[in-house]
Amino acid sequence: MSDNVRRVVSVIVYNESSTLSRITDLFSARGYNIESLTVAPIPESKYSRLTIVTSGSSRVIEQIIKQLHKLIPVLKVYEHADLVEKEMALVKFPMGENISDIDAICGAYNGKIVNVGTDVIFVMVADEPKRVSNFLNAIKKYHPKEIVRSGAVALER
């Protein structure tokens, strides 16, 4: 059996203030792991969409999905098998680094320089989570001052 593999779960929830804590409480109460979680309203609806990256055996995932479904404000839950998945990262570099090198690497990961200040430059990339990790590895030698990852979002193919 495929044990403890990475899973991406989308949850469509009724948009109210307590919903997010209901979901995160469920994960902590039942001992499930959250690797990343993103949430934003679905345009022109009263619902929000959460994308949760977690891990577990197929049995654990089945329980996670069923338990999520039991929450009253949850409309739909699906685990993605065949999906398009993207994540964004923002990185701040000191001005002294080699800007053209950094720009070239960004280009390879679907990114670019987005802001230039007096002391720092900002770059962004948007790619598959694994490739974002690769990018962050590749830019290590340019001494990034700060890194923020957005967490994954996904849609079924």
């Binding site: 049995r59 089945e62 329980q63 069923k66 338990q67 479904h69 039991k70």
Partner: peptide
């Protein structure tokens, strides 16, 4: 009645 109880 509770799907989460089945195969838990």
């Amino acid at each position: 009645i509770d799907p989460a109880s089945i195969s838990k």
